[in-house]
Design a protein around this nucleic acid. Sequence first.
DNA 1: CCACTTTCGCAACAGTGTTGCCAAAGAGCA
DNA 2: TGCTCTTTGGCAACACTGTTGCGAAAGTGG
Lengths: 364, 364
Amino acid sequence: MNRGISGANLPALRHHNAALVLDLLRAATRHGTGGISRLELAERTGLTPQAVSKITARLRAEGLAEESGRQASTGGKPRTELRLVRRARYAAGVHLDRDELTVVLADLSGERMRARTSRLDFGRPAGEVLEAVAREVRALDAGPAILGVGVAAPGPLDHASGVLHRVTGFPDWDGFPLRDALERRLGLRVVVDKDTNAAALAVLGQDAGDGSFAYLHLGTGLGAGLVLDGAVFRGERTGAGEFGHQVVQLDGPVCGCGNRGCIEAMCLAAVDRGDSAGAAYLLGVGAANLVSLLDIDRVVLGGRTVLADETLFRQEVAAVLTERTARSAGRTVPVSVAPGGTRVVADGAALLVLASVFGGAALG
Amino acid sequence: MNRGISGANLPALRHHNAALVLDLLRAATRHGTGGISRLELAERTGLTPQAVSKITARLRAEGLAEESGRQASTGGKPRTELRLVRRARYAAGVHLDRDELTVVLADLSGERMRARTSRLDFGRPAGEVLEAVAREVRALDAGPAILGVGVAAPGPLDHASGVLHRVTGFPDWDGFPLRDALERRLGLRVVVDKDTNAAALAVLGQDAGDGSFAYLHLGTGLGAGLVLDGAVFRGERTGAGEFGHQVVQLDGPVCGCGNRGCIEAMCLAAVDRGDSAGAAYLLGVGAANLVSLLDIDRVVLGGRTVLADETLFRQEVAAVLTERTARSAGRTVPVSVAPGGTRVVADGAALLVLASVFGGAALG
DNA sequence: CCACTTTCGCAACAGTGTTGCCAAAGAGCA
DNA sequence: TGCTCTTTGGCAACACTGTTGCGAAAGTGG
């Protein structure tokens, strides 16, 4: 039950509560509902109204929040609405893919403001790739209000240290300290994570939910980003979400990993022979396994293959899930396609940086 | 990134830190190493030595902790060792199984002091079963220092509300408010959880680890208890850990749940035909899926079927795991059998109550 | 016996959220 | 228009947290 070094002091408490309030402000700001009142913040956080007043006063003094209007009166003084000052800070998001480089600039609410996409050969020497990333980030011209750079790359890698491991097909990157190298080159804080985790974070950022979901990404490979109890679950070595090598057919075809019947191998085989429905069916079975094992609330799909035929994948996966989980779990699990198209991963990468403002490692 | 009502105030901060210290004291007390010094507590929690002094002073004033000796000097005043006062509080643990009732009394460190086992027909009317449980708990004669009663039952059920759902084979219990009914009858605080979660908690309590593991229980059914980042993961509806209906053979035999190739159906079929090695192999495949999906550190086995042939199951599961994960994850995943034999679940049930002292819902 | 090291508590302190109180701002009604 | 009622939200005093500075206690080693 011990959680390591997690003793909390007053600054930690302050950061925790401020992050909580900021996150609610972000959700309200982003949905364009005008804002959220102090009393509603108090209800949602469990803090007293006076505590919320103090916290929001500090945030306003720092220029992170502002009053944005008033709600209709309910018989007395109307509630004042608060919102984030979107342009107060920025974050850059980098999606480092095998053949493409996408860089976005997000404002404090996480909304994308600018985006740049260029071709990139991940197989080139590290210095060259790094230079391309640095050039694109600088081209965003974000100024001094930039908090840092989030980088999403194909796994496996280590989120804590920012070091890449044997990226499939690109052995040269094994052990490359991407975070430190990029931090030195840009002079900015850098956070590295798996592409699927970044995408999951982007989906999570859409509606500051409290529950759990799985983001399933079907593109050149098959992977997952898991959000459990409202936070991205990475595991000790950032290995969580290795969905592709779940075995669903003991005597199935041999996979590159050496085992038989991995869902990735079978799914990609179906895609290769043009059988999208078959791929979607397999995805549904894997999703049903996840739903039953982790009791998650919903499933979100993404990746090039899915985006090529959104409706088919969404409907087929939903059908399989309904058939398999309604019987046992007695509930319907919603299936959706991640909004934001091919840029979800880069959007989520930017959120990796904002997460340190909106929560993250607040109290452990 | 929002976690619902989780605003923290000073009492919450105090509880959080006190729970952290108590948990470290418990681990030190239980391992019989004599205790843990204030400075070590400070290092492990990240709190300042003076904060630890204040906290332990409060705990000693409450009678929960005491000085137990001194360590060897390293050139100056020797460190004073602290430990839990084991007899300061007690917790009862109840394992409500389909045909058996086990009740244990645990001291503050979680160690079992007394145990009672009796036959019980779970199919009898609820009132009758409840009376049997109440009688056995009262027979523990724990006195007024008892904190409460933890009850572990076969799922599905809801941990938050303490209500049972359609227990397989015993439809009468569907919707029965076990927690409230038992609280009224005993006048004690009651916590209800799935048997597999209780067992996982017992394993977790053995060494206050920080990592993640899966407890796999093979008995009349096949289920799992998941410990992620040092805490039992239950999911929103206490549905997490439904390991038995993971599909590992798309075209496999039909399972009672309606799907084909569920690991539980295939595993139990192997057990039924006396093929323990086959069952262990299947368990290993399922475990490998878990390890790869959740990046967990180790696998712990339990349940009557496993206990009937510990060595075989441990070795076979370990072999399958090594073969399948060493290639991809590049690490060896230790496999062990849960200590405590058939009473793990009851031991863990007692820990459900102690968890409210040692942490649990401290800051969220 | 004395210098040195290390542990650990006392006292003063900075800063958190909380409580009690009151001014501000609108609705509703005479 | 004027008055009352309701509700919001800030000010000030407060209780309590962990932190810092300092000194007493309790060992080791020469």
